[in-house]
């Protein structure tokens, strides 16, 4: 199967106790595309990704590549080719960059694939800086390098769907541009991407399709380009950001 949706989420709800953080969110990621979820702080973006990945109990239906995962479970999602780069990166700080990358290929290794060295070369080609520092402990890296390592580690699993949670958070503008360049490059290589971002401008530029999440529910969705020109979006998400962006690039 080469067409259709790599990921389909239907009526996903997540509750913390009695408070519903995400309610009936439905979204889909067509194969080979970049889909972004934008929205303000606390809208439930991270919670949605965690629930899809199986890190949090949820109700609803998650379909990966045509197969329904009744109860998403992290290890199973990794086997299915879904990988998450979490907002907190979750690196193995005291271990070397190379070990971090090797562990990214853990599940593939368990399934009998022995191409980890080749994949690692590909990751090093994408992020030459990681190769330079491969024997360094991950905990000693700068913020940008950590993000590169987190993405590289996820790529070691050869994901069909890569979920990125706030990849630009806390990074210098130059690094942010680098990260988005990599995201575009990954799509060219056939990786489908679900991108959660607060940097709405950059996200809408990179993505094909976008969902706007507010108070745990999808408020608007549509082609990324249309949303970028939608007055409601410009006012709420791009207005301030664009001024901010101009200041930064000036």
């Amino acid at each position: 199967m080469t067409t259709g949706n790599i990921l389909e989420v239907k009526d996903l709800s997540v509750a913390y106790g009695k408070v519903e953080a995400v309610s009936k969110v439905s979204l889909s990621v067509p194969r080979g595309s970049i889909v972004t979820v934008i929205g303000p702080n606390g809208a439930g973006k991270t919670t949605t990704l965690s629930a899809i990945m199986g890190l949090r109990p949820s109700s609803g239906r998650v379909t990966v590549d045509g197969t329904v995962e009744t109860v998403p479970e992290v290890e199973r999602m990794v086997v299915r080719g879904v990988n998450l780069v979490p907002e907190k990166r979750e690196l193995f700080g005291s271990m070397t960059i190379e070990d971090n990358l090797l562990l990214g290929g853990f599940q593939r290794h368990r399934q009998g694939h022995r191409d980890q060295r080749d994949t690692m070369e590909e990751v090093y080609a994408l992020f030459p800086r990681l190769r330079e520092r491969r024997q360094q402990a991950a905990g000693t890296l700068s913020g940008g390098e950590r993000q590169m390592l987190a993405v590289g580690r996820a790529l070691m699993a050869k994901p069909t769907l890569l979920m990125l949670d706030e990849p630009s958070l806390g990074l210098a503008p130059l690094i942010v541009r680098e990260i988005f360049r990599i995201i575009a490059e990954l799509r060219r290589r056939g990786v489908s991407i679900l991108l959660v971002e607060q940097n709405a401008r950059a996200a809408l530029q990179a993505a094909d399709y976008a969902y706007v999440l507010e108070n745990g529910a999808v408020k608007i969705h549509g082609a990324a380009q249309d949303l970028a020109n939608d007055p409601r979006i410009i006012e709420s998400y791009l207005g301030l950001a664009s001024k901010h962006q101009e200041r930064l690039s000036a």
Partner: peptide, 26 residues
């Protein structure tokens, strides 16, 4: 060994290890 490193990874960061497909039960 990769298995040994997987155990170290779990010790360092359980959530990170789970995201690599290393289950805490394993």
């Amino acid at each position: 060994t990769l298995l040994g490193k997987a155990l170290r990874a779990t010790a360092v960061n359980r959530d990170g290890a789970r995201l690599m497909g290393i289950s805490p039960a394993f």
